[in-house]
């Protein structure tokens, strides 16, 4: 393997996603995201001086909500509720793993 063939990755926590980048990353229209942000469906999203920035967790959440809306014709509120529950479940599963119980 030659050194120049190796790609250098960047961790998203160190490099936040912009609104357009997040929209592109989950194949949605930026307006879809804006609408969901205004309704408060992204509790972790932060806006600094009117500019949104998103973490890896927001990306996972956006993709989940989009799939729920698409697969089940879920209204955004329902998709957000299910995403909340899934995140809660992720956290509980992480605690189980931590306790070595999974």
């Amino acid at each position: 393997m030659r050194e120049r063939d190796i790609l250098e990755g960047q961790l998203l926590e160190e490099a936040w996603l912009t609104l357009d980048q997040l929209a592109a990353a989950c194949s949605v229209d930026p307006d879809w995201l804006l609408l969901h942000l205004e309704e408060g469906f992204f509790p972790q999203a932060r806006s600094v001086a009117g500019v949104w920035r998103f973490s890896g967790a927001a990306l996972v959440r956006a993709r989940r909500m989009r799939r729920l809306e698409r697969d089940f014709d879920a209204v955004p509120e329902m998709a957000a509720l299910v995403a909340d529950l899934l995140e809660e479940m992720d956290a509980l599963r992480a605690r189980l793993r931590r306790a070595g119980l999974d």
Binding site: L7, L11, L12, L59
Partner: peptide, 29 residues
């Protein structure tokens, strides 16, 4: 792809490889 894994990566994180997505101006990630 040969990817250099950033030190300190942990589960749930996202590694971005700039310019390795679909072609365009600029190329996607």
């Amino acid at each position: 792809l040969n990817v250099k894994i950033p030190r300190g990566v942990c589960p749930g994180q996202v590694i971005r490889l700039a310019g390795q997505g679909a072609p365009g101006a600029p190329a996607g990630d």
